[in-house]
Design a protein around this nucleic acid. Structure first.
Length: 955
RNA sequence: GCGGGGGUAGCCAAGCCUGGCCAACGGCGCAGGACUUAGGAUCCUGUCCUUAGUGGUCCGAGGGUUCAAAUCCCUUCCCCCGCACCA
């Protein structure tokens, strides 16, 4: 194990000494490849290395194929992940500290992690050194950049100026989660900003206004299409509501709702409380249908959800139905509120037809499940089921006026919009569950009027981008097709945030920070500039709009730009030439989560800003390595830290594991036993290399020709697979097919020094992309010249079809023998092989000729061959054989026919292989021709012989 | 509901696009053997049923096209992912 580590370090430093990581313009064709840079969110786990490893392997392959390769890396630190981690470290949060230490953070580094910048610097270092360098990647480290560096920020500001220039930045209102104290926060499952509620979603409610005298009761609903089924209104008698002034209207809502409203509407002012009980028994006018309905008591109205007031649609809402039935069963309850029980004599109004349900879906499901009251634990399930089916399968029925016949999905939007237009409704956004900021204050939805969006819905841009994608290399091919739909689906995206975020200031309003998805779209081109910034040749102050316009878009004169910015004219020329040389990006690789987020934005921004000849050429999507249950979680433990895995299994074992374990387009469950078996595989392969190299014999003929031919084919196969970056197939050839062939060669007695050395030479080169450290080590030990990583990938060699045919013939004979041994269980003292008699070969060759001419049939063949005296003399056996051959041949493909018609010297081959067969079987082997006189054939087996398939007799 | 992917022998997983050496690559697991009797090692053989190398059945299920289908067409069942939906 330690041996792995020594070898890894040795070669990594050699590569570095030799400057393999440095990519500079030259005369070779270029190849630029990246993986989507990771967010700086903490430690990564073994699953993340999968995609990164693909990129290094592909870039090494391209390098060995004569390409000048650029593989730059960076990190994405935009957002508030680092801020929140820093604050937790500063607060000495035990879980956070434990997490850091468990993953190998030195205790002494903790103070560094108390600032966001410190967090980013620390993890940049971890990613580069503990992950990427540790895995032997040949990246151009000089170009490393991170999205919160000032020079990067200048680039992003330039990008946004270009978007503005193109009219792709637009403003419109937006509803965003925000802490009442801290301002905007991110609501997502990682809960970096939150202490509670990361899974909450933003729901759009329709506020329905029920006129009640000169004021309105306001109900919030997610199902505005059900208004035709309204029978009554629910108020919680135990809740105190409030009156609020909204514009020139008076609304009644719950107290929490009134507070939420102030963040979303102008002109909201409190008027005073009103007890729920005061509202009971009133009549109010239901929107859309205009009918007067009674206000009834219900305990399930939660003041924290929606407005705390609910409209009742018992036909389709199980909650409403159950509450109504409870009231109807319990007249005393109504009397206790001073209401006449007859007020609850309400007819349910069916409004939606759903396949598989009666006219009122809620009645159906509640009765079917036997739900009796509002406390029944199955009620939520019933609700979920009926809503789901209603939404997907439902159609509005004849009680729904002009909406009759519409699908629920359509009716919902139409009815909402119609009520908004008539003033009977309003919109309200709320979180689906309670969300609490890290600071402890509640998070609510705030309306932002002047939110900036990138207009990815632009039809012209979408059309151009879709067209360009048709010419790209997009893997897997499913995504090639699907991306067209994704681009259509991609709409305006809010691109700036307010509040405490790391990132680039929005150039048109410095109070905003550009958000994470929007500042990570065009950045690959910045890798061509970052090295100049890193080396101090260009300062961020010099990165003006004309500078980027010039070096990226070719605008303006170099001399002018040089003068304006003070950048050395040669430096400027060099940057411009770099961009022209390296761009476009040949391949961008990212995980499947990017399919609907990053990749479309990446494509759109390039299409919008870059000239046609700098548009991306390829995308590669990889799926995940998962834990036992779903994705390996960074936070929940169970994740294998990367350096530990490298230590345990060896980097090359892991690289092979990633490359080979499954299709890149499938999730894989991390399983240490599997990884172990890959470690054994690389060990075995390396032993085999040594063994091959140590051979010092002479050419023995067919086996040697066979191995050379097979190696030539394997080289060809790997090249073919790598044409579409199919590392798995490539690895399969190199680490499985080739060893199998070499085993056969050795078993067969192959010992030729020249053949073996040639095979080792090609084989190590083929290994270099995936297991570079071990391949280099072996390369050195066999006296290879220079670094293998800089060597050429093996080229084309001719095949030797004849030796391949001969070996497969031999293997088939052995298989047949084994089959018989297995069935009979005998331990043979002698094996007799009988090659087919000449007359059978004659029949076969006539049949092949006929099959090729398309004239093969049983009568034709029989007639033809029976005219030959040498055949006819075998009488019935001859005609039966002809019949069998004809039947068989008529269903063979041309490639099989070729094989059958091959003219090989079976007796000669078997004769040559006799010593081999004898040692394999441990018995005497005798080769006969069925044509021999006085044939030794005690069981008359010889007659079963067929050309290419000798008869067998074991005794 | 919309969009996408998939069901292959104990497991994982190729192949299907460009039908034919496909009973179906390869790996793992398992069984037997060899070597060796230290090592999670290596090598050979076997691993649907049947059988002196044959024959039968087989690639979710059912039809069809074809001389020939895991591969093409139709029907059907099931699973997964994204979106949507859910006071």
């Amino acid at each position: 194990m330690a041996r792995f580590k020594d070898i890894e370090e040795k070669w990594q430093s050699r590569w570095h000494e030799q400057g393999l990581h440095i990519s500079e313009r030259d005369e070779r064709p270029k190849f630029m490849i990246i993986f989507a840079y990771p967010g700086v969110t903490g430690y990564l786990h073994v699953g993340h290395m999968r995609g990164y490893t693909y990129v290094d392997a592909i870039s090494r392959y391209m390098r060995m194929n004569g390409h000048n390769v650029l593989f730059p890396v960076g990190t994405h630190a935009t957002g508030n992940g680092a801020i929140s981690l820093a604050s937790r470290v500063a607060a000495r949060d035990p879980d956070t500290i434990d997490y850091l230490l468990r993953n190998g953070c030195p205790e002494g580094s903790l103070p560094l992690l108390e600032t966001p910048e410190g967090v980013v610097d620390f993890f940049n270092d971890v990613y580069v050194n503990d992950y990427w360098k540790r895995f032997g990647f040949l990246c151009d480290w000089r170009r490393f950049t991170s999205s919160i560096r000032p020079d990067y920020n200048r680039f992003i500001q330039w990008q946004f100026r270009k978007l503005m220039e193109l009219g792709l930045l637009i403003q419109k209102p937006y509803y965003a989660p925000a802490c009442v104290e801290c301002g905007p926060v991110a609501v997502d499952p990682s809960e970096t900003d939150l202490s509670k509620g990361g899974n909450a979603e933003v729901n759009e409610y329709t506020l329905l206004k029920f006129r009640c005298g000169d004021e309105y009761l306001i109900a919030a609903t997610l199902r505005p299409e059900t208004v035709f089924g309204q029978t009554n209104f629910w108020v919680n008698p135990d809740v105190d509501y409030v009156r609020v002034r909204v514009g020139d209207e008076t609304w009644i809502v719950s107290e929490p709702a009134s507070r939420k409203l102030t963040h979303q509407m102008d002109d909201v002012s409190p008027l005073g409380p009103v007890a729920g009980t005061e509202l009971l028994g009133m009549m109010c006018a239901a929107p859309m249908i205009g009918r007067e309905i009674p206000v009834l008591p219900a305990a399930f109205c939660d003041p924290n959800v929606g407005t705390g007031l609910v409209t009742s649609v018992p036909s389709d809402a199980p909650d409403d139905l159950v509450a109504l039935r409870e009231l109807q069963r319990d007249p005393d309850k109504l009397r206790s509120y001073g209401l006449d029980p007859s007020i609850a004599d309400i007819d349910i109004i069916p409004i939606i037809d759903i396949e598989g349900y009666g006219p009122c879906a809620a009645v159906d499901i509640v009765d079917r499940m036997g739900v009796e009251d509002g406390r029944d634990p199955r009620l939520p399930e019933a609700k979920k089921q009926v809503y789901k089916d209603g939404h997907h399968l439902g159609r509005m029925n004849s009680n729904c006026g002009t909406y009759e016949g519409l699908r629920v999905e359509e009716a919902k939007e139409r009815m909402r919009d119609d009520m908004l237009a008539s003033g009977e409704a309003s919109l309200f956004h709320d979180l689906s569950e309670e969300v609490v900021c890290r600071c402890g204050k509640p998070v609510m939805i705030r309306r932002v009027d002047d939110q900036w969006f990138i207009d990815y819905g632009n039809p012209e841009l979408t059309a151009r981008t879709k067209e360009h994608c048709k010419g790209m290399g997009i893997f897997p091919s499913e995504y090639y097709n699907n991306v067209q739909g994704v681009l259509d689906w991609f709409r305006e995206r809010a691109c700036v945030r307010q509040g405490n975020w790391l990132g680039t200031r929005f150039p048109f309003d410095e109070g905003w920070i550009i958000e994470a998805i929007s500042d990570s779209t065009l950045y690959p081109v910045y890798y061509l500039i970052s090295s100049y910034a890193n080396e101090g040749k260009v300062s961020e102050a010099q990165m003006t709009e004309p500078f980027f316009d010039h070096v990226i878009l070719g605008r303006g004169e170099g001399a002018d730009v040089s003068q304006q910015t003070g950048i050395d004219a040669d430096v400027l020329r060099s940057i411009k030439a770099d961009v022209a040389y390296w761009y476009p990006l040949d391949l961008n690789l990212g995980g499947k989560e990017h399919m609907t987020v990053h990749f479309p934005a990446f494509l759109f921004n390039h299409q919008a800003i870059m000239p046609d000849d700098l548009l991306p050429r390829g995308i590669f999507v990889n799926w995940y390595i998962t834990g036992k249950k779903g994705k390996i979680s960074k936070s929940k433990g169970g994740a294998q830290p990367i350096p530990g895995a490298a230590e345990r299994f060896g980097v090359d074992s892991l690289r092979l594991y990633y490359a080979h374990v499954a299709s890149p387009f499938a999730d894989v469950e991390w399983d240490e036993d599997i990884v172990t078996s890959y470690r054994q595989r690389v060990e075995r392969v390396m032993r085999m290399v040594e063994e091959l190299h140590s051979l010092d014999g002479a050419d023995r003929g067919v086996a040697d020709r066979w191995l050379r031919s097979r190696m030539a084919r394997h080289v060809e196969a790997t090249r073919r697979h790598m044409d579409h970056y199919d590392l798995r197939q490539m690895a399969n050839v190199v680490y499985f097919d080739i060893p199998n062939d070499i085993r056969w060669y050795l078993r067969r007695g192959g010992r030729d020094r020249a053949t073996a050395r040639k095979a080792v030479d090609a084989w190590l080169r083929m290994m270099c992309p995936i297991t570079p450290h071990l391949a280099e080590e072996a390369w050195e030990s066999i006296g290879g010249q220079g670094l293998l990583s800089e060597a050429e990938y093996p080229g084309h060699e001719d095949y030797d079809a004849e030796s391949e045919l001969a070996e497969s013939y031999l293997r088939e004979v052995m298989e047949d023998v084994n089959e018989i041994l297995k069935v009979t269980g005998i331990k043979p003292e002698a094996l007799h092989l009988y090659t087919a008699p000449a007359w059978k070969s004659k029949v076969m060759s006539v049949a092949v000729t006929m099959a090729e001419q398309g004239s093969l049939s049983i009568p034709n063949l029989t007639k033809s061959v029976m005219s030959d005296e040498n055949v006819r003399s075998h009488g019935k056996a001859a005609s039966e054989f002809a019949k069998k051959v004809a039947t068989d041949m008529m269903r063979r493909s041309t490639s099989e026919l070729e094989r059958l018609s091959a003219d090989i010297d079976e007796a000669g081959l078997l004769g040559e292989a006799r010593p081999f067969l004898e040692s394999e079987l441990g018995c005497e082997v005798v080769v006969h021709s069925s044509d021999e006189d006085d044939l030794y054939d005690p069981q008359s087996k010889a007659r079963a012989s067929v050309p290419m398939r000798p008869a067998i007799y074991l005794e």
